[in-house]
Design a protein around this nucleic acid. Structure first.
Lengths: 231, 231
DNA sequence: GGCGCGAGTCACGCGTCCGTCACAATGCGC
DNA sequence: GCGCATTGTGACGGACGCGTGACTCGCGCC
């Protein structure tokens, strides 16, 4: 369908943002929640592909959240990775009992986390195979983390890729600069809105060589839109 | 789409005014209150779009105010951002429990505050599903922010789009120039009423190419109407 | 350490759109 | 038919939004 969406449920903002940052760099779409209640709301409206749940949460413990989600048939299939502090190591077992698909002990290296996320996605991926989104000659290869035209790969920087990837999975819809910053850059980053313009420009330039730059459309006074239909 | 109204509830006047200054610069309309009681009065008569509430207030704490407002069905939907000093950090959680939509710790950068305000407004304001309004061959694509006839897009400027968009969602009804200025331009702009005529003219011209200009009808002495039925 | 790359910001230029005006055209009451 | 009120229309000045190239800074790599 798109770049994989990962929901981070973690109450400590700095940790949450650090993880989110790493995952976005790795090409995931990241959603954040600070407690179980918020997590349930995000799950309902964003349907993430994987959950990273901190063991210690302000309202309900991560374990309880896991148990609850694994009981609900709507959320049963969403893989869950639990984050636990080392001191709580003994609880791992009950974590897996609760239905979590894996666990990672803090502190962990981003690389380790990524490896586990990919492992879990691969394992559960049989139900939702790596998809390829096509639009106007462009092919978004999520697994390969690239965009191709025919046999050629479009050379894109990380941000350009995330931007195009987001657009291709959300076509025919206008997004304001603010919304794009939220969904592509991540909710808690503070950059100028005009930064979006610059990356749009770079993306267009990259697509130009393949004759696909007209798909990125400017909607004056509103924002940008990805559309294969003429302006 | 008028400017968003933000109510600042903060007892220290210098801080309040500084925040207000920044928000006004960013295009918001700002209302101020120095305590909970005043806040409730302003909410009742001004109906702000968002509340910035300081944690420490002279009468009732910001948290209590938040709880109270979130219980009242009239004010439940107004998003609230709590301002807390760093020393009170542990209270964040109960702040969110109380129903606040976000929190910002002092000291904060104006940019961060703006980003959070926008994020909250976006989250609470854009829950509408993709809708398409059809009328007389015209299709208003709200999400895509455009109007199409068949496969073709009607080329419209921002104001023309807003005007047509308003008409298509409020058809078969006469609106005076004054009402149109209110609903399409936004309540607090001062422009000549005849400006409406000019934009009606431009809109008609844009629709003419598609044979749809007769839908915009003049009602002499009253105003304009969008109707797919013949005059 | 030097290097290149990419991200974010800025300043400038240009095109588009907006609000206003003046004048033409049209409708309405007498 | 006449005169007044109301609306249509074209033009214009200015503002604003966006595209664009250049710059700086931080980071990873050799």
């Amino acid at each position: 369908m798109s770049a994989r969406q990962i929901l981070i449920v973690e109450d400590e903002r700095p940790i949450r943002e650090m993880i989110a940052f790493g995952l976005r760099r790795a090409g995931f779409e990241v959603i954040e929640a600070e407690d179980s209640r918020a997590a349930r709301a995000r799950i309902a409206d964003r349907r993430p592909d994987l959950l990273l749940v901190d063991w210690m949460l302000p309202d309900v413990s991560g374990l309880e959240l896991t148990r609850a989600l694994k009981k609900d048939k709507d959320t049963r299939d969403v893989p869950i990775i639990l984050l636990t502090a080392r001191a709580e190591e003994q609880d791992k077992i009950s974590g897996l009992d609760g239905g979590a698909d894996d666990y990672v002990t803090k502190p962990f290296s981003p690389r380790e986390l990524l490896a586990r996320i990919n492992a879990v996605l691969r394992r559960t991926g049989s139900t939702s195979p790596d998809e390829v989104v096509e639009a106007g000659g462009l092919a978004l290869d999520v697994a390969g983390h690239r965009v191709t035209v025919g046999e050629q790969t479009v050379p894109l920087g990380p941000t350009e890729y995330r931007l195009l990837s987001f657009f291709m999975t959300h076509p025919e819809r206008v997004y304001t600069r603010s919304q794009l910053l939220d969904r592509v850059w991540g909710g808690n980053v503070y950059v100028e809105e005009r930064t979006v313009d610059v990356h749009i420009r770079r993306l267009r330039k990259a697509l130009e060589a393949f004759g696909c730059d007209q798909f990125i459309q400017t909607v004056r006074g509103a924002g940008y839109r990805f559309s294969t239909r003429p302006v």
